[in-house]
């Protein structure tokens, strides 16, 4: 069964229709890349799925559970928060909390959540240790065990983005979304992020990646979606989409990249 299902998703900003009936699925452990030119609606799609934007209509399910239902948009804030914790989002410009160390960036939201547990006061020490240990191992996983006590301003862009990946993983999301994770980075720093994403793919993390890195998308993805003008124009395996595109618009887009 698909871990993410998006059905007939629509979103407009004022009179501008940004998403026009988006349909797709992601299987558990799958890596899906979404490519397309700027303004094609890729980022809006991610923001709609992660509930940073409210879609106009459509249905989204995560792991079989209703995540967003266009016919029942009014949900309680606590329920929305519970749903948002099921997915993780890595931003283009990291959005780390500047006043906290790398470690605290990773633990903050988990601590907030733990404080709402009824048994928090009794087991405070054990819970905090567990949260810390988990964050430490996440930062080790992204290769930052020596930077845990550093503040974001003391880290390079690539390091900051790796912290933000660890932060997104801390809540143990079922799906991890990336919104152009390397667009704000120098080419030489891009590699370290792509390495982390590849490692996650090898661990069977379900990921949806909006990217302009065509070679990377080809290498890491199980499936690729090409979006154009708010619709999914073409989808398939990387070989199908990159080597044998059937749609004219896909061909035109890829040609621009290969020039």
């Amino acid at each position: 069964m698909a871990i993410l299902e998006v059905k007939n998703l629509f979103k407009s900003f004022g009179k501008t229709q940004v998403l026009t009936g988006i349909d797709f699925c992601v299987e558990e452990g799958e890596v899906l890349s979404i490519i397309g030119s700027s303004g094609s609606g890729k980022t809006t799609l991610l923001r709609c799925i992660t509930q940073l934007e409210t879609p106009d209509s459509g249905l989204i399910t995560v792991d079989g559970e209703v995540f967003f239902d266009g016919s029942n948009k009014k949900i309680k804030a606590a329920e929305k928060r519970r749903r948002q914790r099921m997915v993780g989002l890595v931003f283009q410009n990291f959005n780390l909390f500047p006043q906290y160390t790398a470690l605290k960036n990773v633990t903050l939201a988990v601590e907030m959540m733990a404080k709402e547990r009824p048994d928090y006061k009794e087991n405070k020490k054990a819970i905090q240790k567990e949260i810390r240990d988990n964050a430490v191992s996440l930062l080790e996983r992204v290769g930052l065990s020596d930077k845990m006590e550093n503040y974001p301003c003391q880290l390079s862009g690539g390091q900051q983005q790796r912290v933000s990946i660890a932060r997104a993983l801390a809540l143990n999301p079922k799906i991890l979304f990336f919104d152009e994770p390397t667009s704000a980075l120098d080419p030489e720093l891009t590699g370290e992020i792509l390495k982390v994403i590849k490692a996650l793919a090898n661990e069977n993390m379900t990921m949806v990646i909006v990217t302009h890195e065509m070679n990377f998308a080809r290498e890491v993805s199980d499936r690729v979606i090409f979006m154009d003008n708010g619709v999914i124009c073409e989808q398939g395996t990387p070989e199908e989409v990159f080597d044998n595109p059937t749609q004219e618009r896909t061909k035109a887009f890829l040609n621009k990249f290969n020039e």
Binding site: T50, Q51, L52, A77, A78, R81, R82, Q84, R85, V87, G88, L89, F91, N93, N95, L96, F97, L108, A109, M112, M113, S164, R167, A168, L171
Partner: peptide, 18 residues
């Protein structure tokens, strides 16, 4: 304060108050 800060907190399931 950039909107991204609020959004980062939001996608991490933090409440408005938090």
């Amino acid at each position: 304060v950039p909107i991204g800060q609020t959004e980062a907190g939001q996608v991490l399931g933090m409440s408005k108050k938090q």
